[in-house]
């Protein structure tokens, strides 16, 4: 009774994307992680950079996991907006590999830019060559970063790096930095084709 189920245990596997995010976050800053899952990223940032972190999650099991990991977590649905958070009240707001699963994409990005002085968005690049080959072969892409079948995927707004660049340009969002990785390695050559995960550091205009 008094022990927690295994699924609440923290995933301690090294994640290159976390390391890049940590590179972008200053020591001791205040971070809001939207769709924070079990709180892995916030644990990593707390332990490495002493950040003051808060997570937002809607899933009951993830709420328990965050609490188990001693992460401050607020149970709410992102789609309802961030009205419970004051403007510019966080140093950094993170949306890690969740952008593609949200309904109101434009609204959420605007809300993040309102609440955070800086915003970090990461997403699986739909333009990655492995995805393109699968599409060309006539199938919906399945990969490490897109591990779902077409019938059970939560992803409804997949995009490529080009698409997201255009999105930022259209909304006058400042891209401070962009990094692209594949298999934990940085990608510099033809990122929209060679990159599997895109990571952006954004600011409001």
């Amino acid at each position: 009774m008094s022990t927690l189920p295994d699924k609440l245990a923290l995933n301690t596997e090294f994640r290159h994307d976390f390391a890049i995010i940590a590179d972008w976050v200053k020591l001791g800053s205040k971070v809001l992680d939207l769709g924070c899952g079990d709180g892995s990223l916030l644990c990593f940032l707390r332990d490495s950079l002493e950040v003051k972190g808060y997570g937002v999650e809607k899933d009951d099991q993830n709420i328990l996991a965050c609490m188990h990991n001693q992460i401050n977590v607020i149970q709410m649905d992102l789609e309802a907006g961030l009205s419970g958070f004051e403007a510019q009240s966080f140093d950094v707001v993170v949306l890690s590999q969740t952008l593609q699963a949200v309904q109101n994409t434009e609204g959420i990005v605007q809300e993040m830019l309102r609440v955070g002085r800086e915003v970090i968005v990461t997403f699986p690049n739909f333009g990655y060559w492995r995805h393109r080959i699968q599409s060309m072969a006539g199938n919906m892409p399945v990969s490490d970063n897109l591990p779902y079948q077409w019938y059970d995927t939560p992803n409804i707004h997949l995009c490529t790096i080009h698409d997201f660049d255009n999105f930022c340009a259209k909304h006058n969002i400042i891209v401070k930095e962009r990094r692209v990785i594949t298999d934990d390695q940085p990608v510099h050559f033809m990122p929209n084709l060679m990159g599997s995960l895109a990571m952006y550091r954004l600011q409001a205009p």
Binding site: D60, N72, I74, Q75, S89
Partner: peptide, 13 residues
């Protein structure tokens, strides 16, 4: 949150 206090919030169904 406005006071940067430690807080977790659960909305139980």
């Amino acid at each position: 949150l406005d006071n940067e206090l430690s807080v977790s919030y659960a909305e139980v169904t």
